[in-house]
Design a protein around this nucleic acid. Structure first.
Lengths: 344, 344
DNA sequence: GTGAAAGCGCTAACAC
DNA sequence: GTGTTAGCGCTTTCAC
């Protein structure tokens, strides 16, 4: 027996297919008793609308696209943040019978924009979640905008007025972490910056400077080294920092992967963490609790952010006319084992 | 200007829409010169076939569904293997202009099978990749089978004759790892078993026993503790093992997450790895290289497996009639820092 | 409130 | 080799 279609339901319920369509799409103008009959017929035939047909007729699917920077473009996949986003988006999708399409893409290739346009035109997603750092690249944002597909930008670094975005308080929470480190008695707190193209991560550096100032510590260029978000860059930076005559007593890395690299190097060099060196990260990916000592970090609410993003898309609140204010989901400090009082 | 459709292309090329369709779908029976004209028209109009329409007419989409056990159902997402699979599947999709749908699902809920059936009927994927341990659950396999959708099972534990599957040599490679540990002089090699529902992981336990025997070591129940694939279970098992009067000198865990847990406990207890204790895992997820000491493990070629699976699906080689032999992608030892000669 | 009819853009079956 | 003609199962428009 083939699947029931809208005609079967209409016949069984004694109504027209349009009425069935109305019921299925929760449109108004259906008498309660009619709706009931239709619902019953739907249940009886275990009818499920065919998505392809819906898409074709409505020019829209029930797919949510999650677009992010392709970790495969790097040697070591720094994938913790991807899982967090997926989980959030999936939670929202599940409760709305939508499905999640994942689409990593490499912004370093010339035709990313064209690729995204194709993706959208071919799959007609109900919406796109655009992750950082893609979300702060005008070329990419414009390409998606041009298709007219609702989308939300995750952590764009700087929200703009016209497009909906969800971010976290990178700067404030980084300042808070810095103050926490200072409160532990640390005077020489080093910072490892993240990938240059990632604006939100750059805000963490600003927050570090804020925190220093708020703690009465003065900022020094010498305590800042440039990483690129990868664990290897974290290791390289740590080596640079820890082989100085006057090494820092605390290192704050702009993300967890780099902080994990710092801890690896400390182990190798026989530097005890946190007795001789405090280490802090940012993101709170699963890795943070899997290494030893467990990493003190700032919990970026990426799961919640992605969930909110998907929900907004599903609710249709990201359309053209929507002048929605950017949302901010606050980050929170996670004090664990890798930080402690400064050594005397 | 709206997007070009098949009629526009047909008109510009001076052919019928059917011919355009043939060209687009690489069907035979098109004269080369005709194909060329059509291709040119396609390029000129930057025509891209509408997937919804294709799906509706052909009852099949260009989506590949990746179905796996939902890590969100656990406390700590053990997500390394998910990323590896996604990456492999994505590689194959990318070169075939297909997209990847991810669908974690919890096999502990009663209606998983019905959920999967809905997913398939609604999205009409070109194929499904079913990851372990779902791939060894008859209820789930049957549900997908019933929809007639091509699918491939990843690491089903035991391949069956009728359905295509891709696995690795869990048993042989585990034996190899065990022999390697024995060759280092270890006599008391403990084993932490994995989640009971995961058949392929159970094969690793068999391999451990093989390896012991091949090395002239005798198997002892006392050296086996039961984990559930999570890092916490690895920690719990390590505590049990290391607080004995006669602790093992090497611990082989059935997966990397548990091995990471062992290393965490060793750090906490002040046990040097690998000087006092060798630790080995299985999977080679990114985590293996992010902890200290870097984990000696068996590299499960999950990325390649998933890629092959997606390719097979895209090539349409997993249909009903296909009596394809199961494929095996061999695993390989990755010797790193967490293993060394047995202490005297 | 409800329904009839006209597509959406493509593939499939068959004719030529 | 190539074209014609029906659908695929729904949404949309507009009439009632």
């Amino acid at each position: 027996m083939p699947r029931a279609n809208i005609f079967d339901v209409a016949k069984l319920a004694g109504v027209s297919i349009k009425t069935v369509s109305r019921v299925v799409n929760h449109e108004p103008n259906v008498r309660a008793s009619t709706k009931e009959r239709v619902d019953q017929a739907i249940a009886e035939l275990s009818y499920r609308p065919d998505q392809s047909a819906r898409n074709l007729a409505s020019h829209r699917s029930h797919l949510i696209g999650l677009v992010y920077d392709d970790p495969a473009a790097y040697e070591l996949p720094t994938s913790g943040y991807i899982i967090k986003m997926q989980q959030g988006a999936l939670t929202a999708c599940r409760s709305a019978f939508s499905e999640l399409l994942i689409h990593p893409c490499n912004y370093r290739t010339k035709d990313v924009a064209a690729q995204l346009t194709s993706l959208i035109e071919e799959t007609r997603p109900a919406g796109i979640i655009l992750a950082a750092p893609l979300s702060n690249m005008p070329k990419i944002v414009r390409a998606i905008d041009a298709t007219g597909t609702p989308f939300v930008r995750l952590s764009p670094g700087k929200p703009d007025e016209k497009r909906f975005s969800i971010g976290t308080n990178d700067r404030e929470s980084s300042a808070e972490m810095t103050r926490y480190l200072a409160s532990l008695g640390h005077k020489r707190i080093a910072f490892i910056t993240g990938h240059a193209s990632h604006k939100a991560v750059a805000n963490r550096f600003l927050g570090y400077q804020d925190g220093l100032q708020q703690s009465g510590l003065k900022f020094s260029e010498r305590l800042v080294v440039a990483g690129d978000n990868s664990i290897e860059s974290g290791e390289a930076c740590a080596e640079k920092l820890l082989t100085r005559k006057q090494p820092p007593t605390a290192i704050f890395a702009a993300n967890d992967d780099m902080a994990a690299g710092v801890i690896r190097v400390a182990h190798r060099m026989g530097v005890d963490v946190p007795e001789q060196l405090s280490v802090a990260g940012f993101d709170d990916i699963a890795l943070a609790r899997m290494i030893h000592p467990a990493l003190t970090t700032v919990r970026q609410p990426l799961t919640e952010m992605a969930q909110r993003a998907a929900e907004a898309l599903i609710e249709g609140k990201c359309g053209d006319a929507s002048e929605r204010a950017p949302e901010t989901v606050p980050a929170t400090l996670q004090i664990r084992e890798s930080t402690g009082p400064a050594a005397r």
